[in-house]
Amino acid sequence: MPTSINDKLKREIIIDHYSSPRHKKTPENINDYQKIHMDSVSCIDNIYVYVKLDNDKIVDACFDGVACAISTASTDILCDLIINKTKAEANYILTQYLNMIYEKDFDDSVLDEAIVFSNTYKQAARIKCATIGCNGIEELIK
């Protein structure tokens, strides 16, 4: 996805992943998954993040709970990006994502739809929401 996509499309992508997230669910075979509870005093988000590993490979990732548009859409998009990746590949993607959020240099070639969150710095109070899922996944695969 080119970084030049316009704001209208970025908004549509966020709304799409918020209103119909692909990965917002509690897995049926929950025992096959690593799980982490993520919440924060600074926001309402209160989610569980799940990752299913096959040795070094992430074969599934999902999340569930109470979450705003920003945390839902960002976590959903990141799940898309890391499924079927190795831990090292996934970690690289998550690092680039965090670099983007924190306004550092980043490799946009691996971020695909996650690029829609490049404006998060405009609403500093929401950085937590845009990173809560990312931080959960990082903990699970480190």
Binding site: C43, D45, C68, A69, I70, Q123, A125
Partner: peptide, 8 residues
Amino acid sequence: VFAQDEAT
């Protein structure tokens, strides 16, 4: 709209 999104 989720409350925190509206507050933002």
